[in-house]
Design a binder for these strands. Structure first.
Length: 375
RNA sequence: GGGAAGAUACCGAAGCGGUCAAACGGGGCAGACUGUAAAUCUGUUGGCUCAGCCUUCGUAGGUUCGAAUCCUGCUCUUCCCA
């Protein structure tokens, strides 16, 4: 993997660049649709590519490991072959599940022991087997196994958690170097900066992570319950310390406003379930503001979902989409997800152009005001 | 023609003397959702001058300190037998 930094804004940390992978290029800043179980829920790869203009999608190690099982994916020839997505893929390590499945897992120095949320069976994730699993899945970018500590963790917990993540990181890289890609193209491993909401821990984490001279660096453990201002502050602490010549990935973020604010602070890559999950639940993000399409007021509004939207689904009427979602028709969830994803990709694509052309900051300021509007 | 069961809020359906403005579903309305245990979850759903009051359980009466609950007439519905 290679990263070329094309431009850094004169008035902020915002950057535009290009990542080169074996499955094609990624223009940054970029938003990566989340495809946890090997599919971006409700969206065909054709629409992801041609309509939404996604350049890279995510998969999740924990979920794919449980179902369909890694053997199936290996037999298919890797996730790209399995789900017929021929552009780059990034897999999360399962570190987030250490957080989100907190009730049914136990941490130890060795790793995390999970109970499957599907059938209750027990499984052990270690830095080593998580790397092996991601080798088998065959994502272009794979993630270190970390502990994503809760937003309200106290300093002592956050410190111990960070130290564990750091020891796990050493083991992840050791295993990564001992093993080869399985499908004839190269993979790269991103370390994850933890440290919760404590500046000094974040700085320490940044310093540690730089030892590995990775192709890119992720920032984790944010947007997990802390205040937004704190998230921005932590993000900036991290980007200030990370090498300029490598992409920075802010994991799990966020709202359109979060994304613009984070781009301004030097983030290049984002992923979030929000456009798909909130879309399925009736929330639409548009350049004019937020729409809760389930609200009665759209019942007889026959204007397009988003008249300036970049997706073909934006020409469906609000009234029709409301009807579909209220009636629990599958198509409603699909249209809403597709619209939101197209909007997210439009947002980061436009941000990129503004960074290159100049004027990102003023455009961002205007957008943030607009994006707060509840239509 | 004879017999039986029933009529409860927008719909379905509990309740069968006071703790009932009335369980529970559905529907309606609103909110939440950030490296997806989520096509999920939460709140609300008679009216008002809203820590209180008023009107509601087919309908008209009655019994009782007190009735959605007991009694009588009426109206309607469903089922069974002729």
């Amino acid at each position: 993997m290679k990263f070329e930094l094309l431009k850094t804004s004169e008035n902020s940390r915002a950057r535009a660049g290009i990542i080169t992978t074996a499955h094609g290029n990624i223009e940054t800043p970029i938003f990566m649709p989340v495809g946890t179980a090997g599919s971006v829920k409700g969206i065909h790869t054709r629409d992801l590519k041609e309509d939404i203009k996604a350049q890279i999608i995510l998969g999740n190690t924990y979920h794919l490991y449980l179902r369909p099982g890694i053997g199936v994916i290996e037999k298919a020839g890797g996730l790209h072959k399995f789900n017929r997505w021929d552009r780059p893929i990034l897999t999360d390590s399962g570190g987030y599940q250490v957080f989100s499945l907190g009730d049914i897992r136990k941490l130890s120095e060795e790793g995390a022991r999970f109970q499957s949320h599907i059938d209750g069976s027990y499984h052990m994730f270690t830095p080593e087997n998580v790397i092996d699993t991601q080798r088998a899945i065959g994502a272009d970018i794979i993630m270190a196994f970390d502990e994503c500590s809760p937003g309200d963790a106290d300093y002592n917990y956050a410190k111990k958690s960070l130290e564990l993540t750091q020891r796990w990181l050493e083991r992840c890289f050791a295993r990564f170097k001992q093993t080869e890609p399985k499908y004839g193209y190269s993979q790269t491993l991103f370390p994850i900066v933890q440290g919760n909401t404590y500046k000094n821990l974040r700085k320490e984490a940044v310093a540690h992570v730089k030892n590995f001279d990775a192709d890119g660096y992720a920032i984790g453990g944010l947007s997990v319950g802390e205040a937004e201002e704190v998230m921005y502050e932590m993000t900036e602490v991290c980007t200030a310390g990370l090498p300029a010549g490598k992409p920075r990935y802010l994991m799990g973020v966020g709202t359109p406003i979060n994304i613009l604010e984070s781009i301004e602070r030097g983030i290049d890559m984002f992923d979030c379930v929000m456009p798909t999950r909130n879309g399925r639940n009736g929330m639409l993000f548009t350049s004019k503001g937020i729409i809760n399409i389930k609200n009665k007021k759209w019942g007889n509004d026959h204007s397009p979902i988003d008249e300036n939207g970049s997706s073909f689904v934006d020409q469906y009427s609000k009234s029709y989409l409301r009807h579909l979602i209220i009636s629990n028709e599958m198509l409603g969830a699909q249209i809403a997800s597709q619209h939101n994803l197209a909007f997210y990709l439009w947002l980061v694509g436009t941000a990129r152009q503004k960074i290159i052309d100049g004027g990102f900051e003023s455009w961002k300021k205007e957008m943030v005001i607009q994006l707060k509007v509840r239509l």
